[in-house]
Design a protein around this nucleic acid. Sequence first.
DNA 1: TCCGCTCTTGACCAAGTGATCAAGAATTAA
DNA 2: TTAATTCTTGATCACTTGGTCAAGAGCGGA
Lengths: 207, 207
Amino acid sequence: MGAATTIPRKTRIQAQNEELILRAALEVFSAYGFRGATVDQIAASCGLSKPNLLYYFRRKEDIYVAVLEHTLHDWLEPLRSLDAAGEPIEEITRYIRTKIRLSRDNPKASRLFANEILHGATAVGNYLKGPLKELVDEKAAIISGWIAEGRLNPIDPHHLIFAIWATTQHYADFEPQVSAVTGNPPDLMATAEEALTRLFVEGLRPR
Amino acid sequence: MGAATTIPRKTRIQAQNEELILRAALEVFSAYGFRGATVDQIAASCGLSKPNLLYYFRRKEDIYVAVLEHTLHDWLEPLRSLDAAGEPIEEITRYIRTKIRLSRDNPKASRLFANEILHGATAVGNYLKGPLKELVDEKAAIISGWIAEGRLNPIDPHHLIFAIWATTQHYADFEPQVSAVTGNPPDLMATAEEALTRLFVEGLRPR
DNA sequence: TCCGCTCTTGACCAAGTGATCAAGAATTAA
DNA sequence: TTAATTCTTGATCACTTGGTCAAGAGCGGA
């Protein structure tokens, strides 16, 4: 009706610079946290002047939530693909392997979330209570089903999921500690994947 | 020899105020991280004026390392008491239970360390590479011994220790996420303790 | 009581930081 | 080419923050 609504089409430059900014923001926010990071740092990191950066994102917080949203979806993909029709031990093994590889290949995203949650999850609180809870409840029900069928050792499925999250992300979030204690051997992540899958499989396979 | 060295005896007021400051610093640093916390916040939190606080600790960083050192020792006590002469499954069960209760009773210390490690462990890096590595290596050797005797399922002991750390501290460090997903039932920590001990015991007990 | 030492504080400073703005440069569509 | 729009930036502001300092208040031993 009436005049055509102004469509917010994105310029080439706009898309390009926003991409640049989000990449730099992930770098800086994951390393220093929200308060520890400065707009100057992000601007310098992507070769833009500070006012220019603030032309694309008016406030520091806008950059932060943008980069959070930008990575949240990918981060939950492995859990989403946990398949009720699959073989339980296989499904969970695949989940653990995918998750630890994700931590290895994208430790900055892991640290970004860890920092956000550690400091109260003020920016993603609603997401946790909404979509995340829904997803986890759905998958927890699947696991409960497998347990009821006797195809898995009994365990509270929520705690199982927390345990998988905690153990896999540990290698990204606590990297300096892991390195210091192990001396950082080249096959660290491979042995971690092996140890974790064995531990969970042995713990979950019915005797 | 010669003149007696000046003994830095501590005044009553000194000891009392330093205690006050460290308590407040744990509160503030664990909630906001090193850069996110302000000296004003800490001062207000313990009812001292900022210059007065800086009379006891010259720099913000001094407060930070003091509170880190003040809690580090207690934090590692459970691992220290892992006993080579004990029964393996019992020892590890006790370790997990002690660790998760420590997380429940002192989540702020957990978050303080988590934040420190997450941001590069610059203040405790040497401690990690020295005393911590020594302690972990010693206990890993004990676990390896148990495995060699066939009293435990084979698993890389370092990764086992990481898994225990990660799963138990998860409930303190990622509390907002855990609360959001579970709805925070009153028996959360009890069921967590149960689920984790079962998982690890089932995974480690030889078949 | 008296004196030296410890403790406390209001005022202040320099650096850093998030954000604004006006004016100019570059790009795009006609 | 031209005019409108988008993009870029130097200068600047208001505010926060770690840290200093001089001066005074309080405390403890002789």
